[in-house]
Design a binder for these strands. Structure first.
Length: 553
RNA sequence: GCGCCUGUAGCUCAACGGGACAGAGCACCUGCCUUCUAAGCAGGUGGUUGGGCGUUCGAGUCGCCCCAGGCGCGCCA
């Protein structure tokens, strides 16, 4: 299919060049891959291009289109059944049965080569979730996890070398507070009635953790240091997080510890470099980074007057490391609360000589939760939050992931928990999965009715597929590769999901109207081959989205 | 106040470097299981794409101005 578009593209450009030489066109006409679409009104053809509408010519467009049509016809391109002109200058193309069958052959014979490799294979690092190990994963993290994982898989399918990374914020004020909160909970259990620190973590999960500790260690805990509680709390919580992620189908290649980066002296080194570059200055006992030249409202503090780092300093060090390790594309998924941070991070990186173009920061908007129409506020510190596990337990991981993946990152989402539960049986994810189950069922049926049938694609068997849905399926199967490529290029997994929904819709229609396994054995074999090709694409696509493709439902 | 995101059917959202008549799911109405899974299919109701001006052969998409919601603008992370 991509080759068909490429051949058409070149042919049109060549004809335009001819017409330019002949004086019909004022300039040559550049034609891009994106100038071709599958017409919404399918009776018009299989492919269409409006590109002639912007041709630099004094001729009326329809006339020009006819001229192009004639020259194109004269070239007798083997995949074209017919060419027509409509809509005031559109060129519409009908593909031959064998051209369509070629799409299917690709899926059957080279299912691993459907996605065109990116022009350059990049070292990509996708950093996401990166939740502080101070509490369970929330719905917001879940959205990032679903999005980031799908993105990583898609980029990888596009031929990039992808690493998933979790930046672990395991030092600083919040971790101190967490440790102190755990200590108080423990002491409470041991009979000391002191209150939690101000701004401490009030979540019930710390009480559970404290109980476990007391059961294990008893009175001896009274002598433990702050460091003990900090480490204990954060590592226990991280274990929970990892296990939640794993059951969500998300496994990180690395957890990068901020504490370790600091300990290795990377932060100091980074600050030194910024100093050398003349980008910092001292004021009121604090060290400031000059971010205003990069469009920031004010310069930002790197080192507080008490000598401790702000978040910015280690984060700059972390990103400098990524550049040093040779990343060619870094995709960061951040919550909207970190938005204001983009400018200062990029300012610092530019100062360090790192190309900011390599860093793509995607702000993943929040999901507002409702319970029976009432808004639920989330705050980890106050102990009031809705953990991701609640959603996955009540709705299932696939439903949850689908919900997140069907929307682009910039959409603010509304999620009514009760509504979602009520509707979960009607969830559109089942539309996809049901197709998968139906396909599996077809092959089980085939084993019964036509055991051992030869399902190799030979001769002109596929040419027998002439029903509208069959043509349509073969046409759309040819688009899978570019759907994945597009999702990867734009960093938008929902584009792939939308493609799969459309593909599966045609299958459901087909299944309803045509009997796959019928009286005519050759026709049955041809149809089964079509279904087999579809199965390969559907499975692959669902895998990229990290959604299961069940064999039964 | 400044910056960013969002505004599309009753609800939740799509629409791929502008393209032909803006699409799905849910909800609602009418049909379809003695053919392979009815978690499906066919048909119907439902839209001035928040409002206005502009660019273009063509605007949901690009530009400017309003309106509304969200989030930022800490020596918090």
């Amino acid at each position: 299919m991509t080759d068909i578009v490429e051949a058409l593209r070149t042919a049109l450009e060549e004809i335009a060049a001819e017409l330019h030489r002949e004086g019909e066109l004022e300039r040559p006409l550049p034609v891009g891959e994106n100038d071709f679409v599958i017409p919404r009104e399918r009776q018009r053809g299989d492919l269409a291009t409006p590109v002639l509408l912007k041709a630099p010519s004094r001729r009326p467009r329809p006339e020009l289109a006819v001229l192009f049509g004639e020259r194109l016809r004269a070239r007798a391109l083997p995949f074209l059944q017919s060419i027509s002109v409509a809509g005031g200058g559109y060129l519409n193309f009908l593909l031959t049965p064998s051209a369509l069958a070629d799409n299917l052959r690709q899926c059957l014979n080279n299912p691993d080569q459907l996605v065109p490799p990116a022009e350059t294979r990049l070292k990509v690092r996708v950093e996401f979730v990166s939740a502080n190990p101070t509490g369970p994963l929330t719905i917001a993290h879940g959205r990032q996890a679903a999005f980031g994982e799908a993105l990583a898989r898609i980029l990888s399918a596009c031929g990039h070398e992808v690493k998933r990374e979790y930046y672990l914020n395991d030092e600083g004020r919040q971790i101190d507070l967490l440790g102190e909160s755990l200590r108080v909970r423990v002491l409470n259990l041991l009979g000391d009635a002191r209150p939690l620190p101000e701004d401490g973590y009030q979540g019930e999960y710390l009480v559970d953790l404290a109980r476990g500790l007391v059961a294990e260690r008893g009175e001896s805990l009274k002598l433990e240091t702050g460091e003990f509680f900090r480490d204990r709390a954060s590592s226990e919580i991280l274990q929970e997080i990892r296990s939640d992620l794993a059951s969500f189908g998300v496994i990180f290649d690395s957890y990068r510890s901020q504490k370790e980066i600091t300990a290795r002296g990377e932060v100091g080194e980074t600050l030194e470099r910024l100093k050398k570059a003349g980008l910092v200055y001292e004021s009121e006992g604090a060290l400031f980074l000059k971010t205003m030249p990069y469009g920031d409202d004010k310069d930002r503090v790197l080192v507080k007057s008490d000598g401790s780092y702000t978040y910015l300093a280690p984060d700059l060090a972390y990103h400098r490391l990524k550049y040093a390790e040779g990343d060619q594309l870094m995709v960061n998924l951040w919550g909207p609360d970190h938005f204001g941070y983009i400018t200062r991070l990029q300012a610092g990186l530019a100062g360090l000589g790192c190309d900011p173009q390599k860093l793509k920061i995607i702000i993943v908007q929040l999901t507002t939760l409702y319970r029976d129409g009432e808004k639920v506020k989330m705050s980890t510190r106050q102990g009031e939050f809705l953990p991701l596990s609640l959603l996955t337990r009540e709705l299932g991981a696939d439903v949850t992931k689908f919900f997140f993946l069907s929307r682009k990152a910039s959409s603010h989402l509304d999620f009514d928990l009760e509504q979602a539960k009520k509707n979960s049986a009607e969830n559109p994810v089942f539309y996809l999965q049901y197709a998968s189950a139906r396909i599996a069922s077809l092959f089980r049926h085939q084993e019964e009715k036509m055991p051992g049938a030869d399902l190799s694609e030979t001769g002109d068997l596929l040419e027998r597929l002439g029903e509208p849905e069959e043509r349509e399926l073969m046409l759309r199967l040819g688009q899978y590769g570019s759907a994945v490529a597009m999702a990867g290029r734009n960093l938008e997994p929902q584009l792939l999901l939308a493609y799969l929904m459309n593909l599966v819709k045609i299958f459901h229609q087909y299944y309803q109207r045509c009997q796959i396994i019928g009286i005519d054995p050759d026709l049955s074999r041809a149809r089964l081959l079509l279904v087999r090709g579809l199965e390969k694409v559907l499975k692959q696509g669902l895998h990229l989205l990290n959604i299961r493709a069940p064999e039964r439902m």
